[in-house]
Design a binder for these strands. Structure first.
Lengths: 110, 110
DNA sequence: CAGGATCCCTTCCGATACTG
DNA sequence: CAGTATCGGAAGGGATCCTG
């Protein structure tokens, strides 16, 4: 189950849907670099697990809207906490990587 | 960066290290089904990103201890919140999957 | 004990083409 | 518009063997 939260796209899609219902193509535009294939797959999994509901409007051409339901909203808070942490600390991580790269070069070099 | 938290093993290793410093083999035993290969790789990434520090004791045979440093500890709280959420809601997810499987069978069947 | 190197099979995923 | 189907390359990761 933690695997799904760990999925690269799942989190991004959820964060977009946190801003309100979105249509398939709107999600595609809001989540950069996601392919139709992965967007479909991600949405199917989220629907399957009860995080989002899918509404089909039988217009022509058809449009489909996805929205978070109660379960999806409930996990938004802990998720947002983690995202907030990541934003606060990404600089520290970047610094750590620089230090690590430097010690790597020093330790294994000629 | 969120990718790394999304990694299957990273979270599990971090949660074990939350209980205190551990040696390499102890981690291997504490995280079921992780291979030496993946444990090494996961620890390298965590070290690289400044979440854990690595202490080598020049005994014979050598032993290596990993422990969370400040950055690692700081992310434990949001992570724990997410894990707590998962534990509270895994039943709801399981129920959603059952419903989904049922509607799948009904919708696409003969 | 801790971990690097290699092999090799599996899964993931993007590109492309087609449909209701 | 919102998908589905198929293919092929790229990446993930286990098994095994080797070293300090």
């Amino acid at each position: 189950m933690l695997d799904r939260l760990g999925d690269k796209w799942t989190t991004l899609v959820l964060l977009v849907l946190a801003g309100g219902p979105r249509r398939f193509s709107a999600l595609g535009r809001a989540v950069p670099d996601i392919s139709k294939r992965m967007l479909t797959q991600t949405l199917r999994e989220l629907e399957r697990d009860g995080f989002v509901t899918r509404h089909v409007f039988p217009t022509k051409p058809p449009s489909v809207e996805y929205r978070l339901d109660a379960l999806g909203h409930s996990m938004l808070e802990p998720l947002a906490a983690l995202v907030a942490w990541a934003e606060r600390n990404h600089a520290a991580v970047a610094a750590a990587r620089t230090r690590y790269a430097a010690s790597e070069a020093a330790g294994h070099g000629p």
